[in-house]
Design a protein around this nucleic acid. Structure first.
Length: 552
RNA sequence: UGCCCCAUGGUGUAAUGGUAACACACCUGAUUUUGGUUCAGAUAUUCCAGGUUCGAGUCCUGGUGGGGCAACCA
């Protein structure tokens, strides 16, 4: 973890600290809007804000940015809390809601009205939009711009009292309709919405806009470093304007580039569509780039944090290869995942010279990367299941697995040699017959035979049946939402889910733990599906395959 | 044709005026009772043009390219 180079935000904080700014405090916040589930892009924001505070011995607030009751819901609040906790972070500075500050925000707006810096506009949204100008032309003033503070105050109080229709009036800041930054052209502060808020109920019928709420909320909480993504960069002058004109604690906003991953979409709107259209099995579908989806898929929090740290922090637009995320998972799981044997496309393997009815319990290493992990015993007998892919009728010398004339080792057991095979009427191999070398037992091999390949297997009578779901990327295109004139759903990968229902697992998996990801030897990493796996009807999700170095 | 941001191997990220580095990917080879892991090695990089300087990826000017901004969304 000893990274010598410091990214630009760390350098900024270092400089602030050196200057003695904020009495040496570092206080960040993570401000999700509870209108959807968190995704891997949010994980970056979480790791930055929580991680930086941790690093500097500071605090982080979790603040739900709930200023738009028509889009927000408590379901999302709970999911967001859980995801943050699962990632391993705690809101050390407390948990808040922007709605906690509605009274304070209202008082702030009164101050701006009294100072002649805000006014009530009676125009329609269309009229206001048409006066806004364009990026290249200045806007024009509203006819209501010069109302007196007294009149504005009376009108605004009426708005608050519910005496005005939705859409009939707004409160705007009086800044500069000719400003080259569109956000400074008399931005709307409050709009009327007769909507029940998930926390404040029907207390309010006016709700503050993001810009009028965010900076002040930061300020109220004493946030020193307000870190957000690049698209808010143009909002910063307004963020600063409100703080300055309200004369409140000067939180500082700093922007970094958000995380983009190839072969997926990352906007909440698009993810919501996949959920609503039933393309996926909810926000936590294992193919979704959501935190909950990755969790269900079998990702570990450690792997996600490692991934985020590898991705870095900068201001440059970036598209990260999803392969890096998979690498981070393998890197973590290789160290910690228990190894087990599972055959997902089973065919029969008969050891012709092994005694009928005999069972041996053979020790097998739980994790060769972890000497502490010990061994467990797995049953072995004359009839086993082997992987269909591990047998080929015609094979060349580069084929290390079973084929006519080939000799291989059965993992943790014996070396076997091909004798015969049986096909069904379609020519598919259904059964392979081999002989074993009794003196080649794992750990006490005196046979002197060298087998190039090692196969996994499961004893036939002790095998547990299970369903295995193998996932591939949800989209077949690197940038599914990067095509003009083409909807991102056109690039859905039709093979993103493959369900195998006749899989055979070693008996120890009968009590596979939810939340544990196992390595199925030679296949990949798998975890029980949190939604569908039951005792006696196990369902496993494949998190990721093993790296495949074989160029056959 | 306004304002803001950005530009370093295939992908990311460093180098803070002094030998362009690290990770992932890719390719070789070694080891291996997982074609995994591990280890060793190879290939490959400063958008362009001027300027400042003994010296520029870094500073300046001008281009070019990419992204963002005109919701009563956040």
């Amino acid at each position: 973890m000893a990274e010598s180079s410091r990214h630009f935000i760390q350098q900024m904080i270092d400089a602030d600290l050196a200057e003695g700014k904020n009495d040496g405090r570092v206080h960040t916040r993570f401000p999700p809007e509870p209108n959807g589930y968190l995704h891997i892009g949010h994980a970056k924001a979480i790791c930055i804000s929580f991680g930086l505070a941790e690093e500097y011995g500071g605090l982080t607030n979790l603040r739900f940015d709930d200023t738009n009751p028509t889009k927000e819901d408590v379901e999302y609040v709970d999911a967001i809390r859980e995801d943050i906790k699962w990632l391993g972070y705690k809101p050390t500075g407390g948990e808040f809601f922007t709605s906690d500050y509605f009274d304070q925000l209202y008082n702030y707006s009164l101050k701006l009205i009294d100072d002649g810096k805000a006014y009530v506009d009676d125009q329609t949204s269309e009229q206001i939009a048409s006066q806004k100008g364009t990026p290249t032309e200045p806007g024009t003033h509203s006819p209501f711009r010069e109302r007196s503070p007294q009149e504005n105050r009376e009108l605004f109080e009426k708005m608050k009292a519910g005496e005005c229709d939705e859409g009939s009036r707004v409160l705007r800041a009086k800044i500069d309709m000719a400003n080259p930054n569109m956000h400074m052209r008399d931005p709307i502060m409050y709009r009327i919405m007769f909507a029940t808020h998930h926390r404040t109920g029907d207390k309010w019928c006016i709700y503050p806009m993001y810009d009028f709420a965010h900076g002040q909320s930061d300020s109220i909480e004493g946030i020193t470093h307000s870190l957000c993504s690049l698209e808010f960069e143009v909002h910063r002058p307004l963020y600063d304007w409100y703080i300055e004109n309200l004369d409140i604690f000067p939180s500082r906003q700093t922007e970094f580039a958000r995380l983009n991953l190839n072969y997926t979409v990352m906007s909440k709107r698009k993810l919501l569509r996949l959920v609503e259209d039933g393309v996926v099995d909810g926000w936590d579908d294992p193919r979704m780039p959501t935190i909950s989806g990755l969790r269900r898929r079998g990702y570990t929090p450690e792997s996600i944090r490692e991934f985020i740290s590898r991705v870095g922090v900068a201001k440059r637009e970036n598209i990260i290869d999803v392969g890096l995320l998979e690498w981070a998972l393998r890197d973590d799981l290789n160290r910690v995942a228990p190894r087990v044997m599972a055959v997902i496309n089973p065919i029969k393997l008969v050891i012709t010279n092994y005694p009928e009815g005999q069972i041996e319990w053979l020790p097998s290493v739980n994790n060769p990367e972890d000497p502490e992990s010990g061994t467990r015993e797995i049953p072995f007998s004359k009839e086993l299941w082997m992987e269909a892919d591990d047998f080929k009728i015609e094979a060349n010398r580069k084929w290390f697995r079973l084929a006519p004339g080939k000799t291989v080792r059965l993992k943790s057991a014996y070396i076997i040699e091909y004798e015969n095979h049986i096909c069904d009427e379609n020519g598919n191999v259904t059964e392979v017959h081999v002989k074993y070398f009794e003196n080649s037992k794992s750990g006490s091999d005196t046979s002197g035979i060298k087998a190039k390949g090692t196969l996994h297997w499961v004893e036939r009578n002790h095998a547990i049946d299970a369903e295995v779901r193998q996932y591939d990327r949800l989209f077949a295109d690197e940038a599914p939402d990067g095509h003009k004139d083409k909807d991102f759903t056109e690039f859905l990968n039709p093979n993103s889910l493959e369900i195998l229902s006749n899989c055979k697992l070693e008996p120890s998996l009968a009590d596979a733990q939810q939340g544990t990801t196992y390595q199925f030897t030679r296949l990949g990493y798998f975890t029980p599906d949190s939604k569908n796996s039951r005792e006696g009807a196990l369902v496993f999700n494949r998190a990721v395959t093993l790296r495949d170095g074989w160029k056959g």
